[in-house]
Simulated assay, not measured.
Amino acid sequence: MSPIDTPRAFIPVRIAVLSVSDTRGPEDDRSGDTLVARIEAAGHVLADRKMLRDDRTDITRQLRRWIADDGVDVVISTGGTGLTGRDVTVEAHRDVYEKEIDAFATVFTIVSMQKIGTSAVQSRATGGVAGGTYLFALPGSTGACKDAWDEILCKQLDYRHMPCNFVEIMPRLDEHLRRK
């Protein structure tokens, strides 16, 4: 058996979910509910969950809190990734990124194209890393959250996924902060 075929044990990660909306509340946050259900079904830990209005400063502040929290490995936000004036989640994410995961947006667009065709061009989904924490901004639609989780995140957040995944490099995300 080669190393790439060696079975590995599952490693649960701690994931915070942020729903961003000016029109929805906790009682009708279907996209947030969808993410939480998938996170828990996959065996991961829901570290925290919040809902905020479309305000760049508030979103950035919450992202920074979770980045500083050792109990959060990953943040997934839903909502505010579109093109309207109130859609500021992507800007808030980019305010905190140390590195952007450019291919996340590309792969998300490819997945979305298979479901919604050229309407996928309207999404600004993004991913990045800051302070050793992964951050992903997904559209507010339940379908987009399902697609991002089922086709990308469930695999990349599973240590058993080969040939590589986000979990295996997690311990090295903030190595630059430890260098002298």
Results as ranks from 00 to 15, higher is better:
1 M>A: 14
1 M>S: 14
11 I>D: 06
12 P>Q: 09
15 I>C: 10
18 L>I: 14
18 L>R: 12
19 S>M: 10
20 V>N: 04
22 D>K: 00
26 P>K: 11
28 D>M: 02
31 S>R: 01
34 T>N: 01
37 A>E: 15
38 R>M: 05
40 E>D: 02
42 A>W: 02
43 G>I: 10
43 G>R: 11
47 A>E: 07
53 R>H: 12
55 D>K: 15
56 R>V: 14
61 R>Y: 09
63 L>D: 05
64 R>N: 13
65 R>Y: 06
65 R>D: 09
66 W>Q: 10
67 I>S: 13
67 I>Q: 09
71 G>Y: 09
72 V>H: 05
72 V>C: 14
78 T>R: 04
81 T>S: 07
82 G>P: 09
90 V>R: 07
94 R>E: 12
95 D>I: 11
96 V>W: 07
97 Y>D: 06
98 E>P: 02
102 D>E: 14
103 A>F: 13
103 A>S: 14
104 F>C: 00
105 A>W: 02
106 T>S: 12
108 F>L: 09
108 F>S: 01
109 T>Q: 11
110 I>C: 08
111 V>A: 08
115 K>M: 08
120 A>M: 11
121 V>I: 15
125 A>N: 04
126 T>S: 14
128 G>P: 06
129 V>R: 00
130 A>Q: 01
131 G>W: 00
132 G>Q: 01
132 G>V: 08
134 Y>T: 06
135 L>R: 07
138 L>A: 06
142 T>L: 00
143 G>Q: 10
146 K>H: 15
150 D>P: 00
153 L>D: 01
154 C>G: 03
157 L>Y: 08
163 P>L: 05
164 C>Y: 15
168 E>V: 12
169 I>E: 03
170 M>R: 15
170 M>W: 01
171 P>A: 04
171 P>C: 04
172 R>I: 07
173 L>R: 04
177 L>G: 07
178 R>H: 13
178 R>T: 10
178 R>G: 09
